[in-house]
């Protein structure tokens, strides 16, 4: 196997006495779609936060494209090519759908503040290019007609999709999706998963997906990592995971298990 895109090496994240993530290692290859599952409080979101620089791992380190990223602030990690969505939706509340996505194009701008002040000719050309890119992404997710609506006025499901669009606008190599289908009904979920597969192939992305619905995860992911109480209890193909006794035990009595 060639060097993985993302590599977690014995990551531990501790909050006071609580080890939210304990010695977790796994890696993601290019263009791979990996599922991250586990009961509530298992540490999935914490792993996302450790990868994106929101938290610094207490021990261990994260490598991306063969380089350690641990000590960088989030915006630099994003610039390297890791984008994410948030479990508790974090759209820019005062902005329109279009502007939410536009913000994510910010770091790819070739002009600086001096051009923006004056609205130089460079700006005009770039703004047009950005508008085209943003609209293209919005169209993929069927949000182009709501471009001028306030982001927070969208239905819940659309807000989640907008978060994905916004993350894609940063042009990532790795996309981290934290429960993107939460609150959706089964048909919407299936639609969304198809879309995720579609953009994954179109933009040649690696995706790490957190999702509670086992049927959905099993259907879409090539590989699955299972967390429980901060520990990685299993990793493998959907078939292996389904048969793993530890996983069955962790999910026992939890109706999300299929």
């Amino acid at each position: 196997m060639s060097a993985p895109l993302l590599d977690l090496d014995n990551i531990t994240v501790q909050f006071g006495g609580l080890k939210a993530v304990a010695d977790v290692s796994f890696s993601i290859g290019e263009r791979e779609l990996v599922g991250l599952i586990g009961p509530n409080g298992a540490g999935k979101t914490t792993i996302f936060n450790a990868i994106t620089g929101v938290y610094r791992p207490t021990a261990g380190h994260v490598s991306f494209l063969g380089k350690k990223v641990g000590h960088h602030p989030p915006y630099i990690i994003t610039a390297r090519g890791i984008a994410r969505t948030f479990q508790n939706i974090r759209l820019f509340a005062s902005m329109t759908v279009f502007d939410n996505v536009r913000c994510a194009c910010n770091m790819h701008l070739k002009h600086g503040i001096s051009h923006a002040l004056w609205r130089g000719t460079k700006v005009a050309a770039e703004e047009q290019r950005i508008e085209r890119d943003v609209m293209e992404l919005l169209e993929i997710f069927g949000l182009h007609e709501q471009r001028d609506e306030n982001a927070k006025a969208l239905p819940y499901g659309d807000q989640r999709r907008l978060e994905i669009v916004r993350a894609l606008a940063t042009k990532p190599k790795l996309l981290l999706l934290d429960e993107p289908a939460a609150g959706m009904n089964p048909t919407e979920k299936v639609e969304l998963m198809k879309l995720i597969r579609f953009v994954q192939e179109k933009f040649a992305l690696a995706v790490l997906l957190v999702e509670h619905d086992m049927k959905v995860v099993m259907g879409i992911c090539e590989r699955i990592v299972v967390l429980d109480y901060g520990l990685k209890i299993a990793e493998g193909t959907p078939g292996e995971i389904r048969a793993n006794p530890k996983v069955i035990a962790a999910y026992l009595g939890k109706e999300t298990a299929a």
Binding site: T78, R90, F92, A169
Partner: peptide, 21 residues
């Protein structure tokens, strides 16, 4: 401008703004 939407992003949600680069 797209550049300046960053100011509003900082106001709206700093964590999300950082995550968007």
């Amino acid at each position: 401008s797209t550049y300046g939407r960053g100011f509003l992003a900082v106001r709206d949600d700093e964590i999300a703004a950082e995550a968007m680069g």
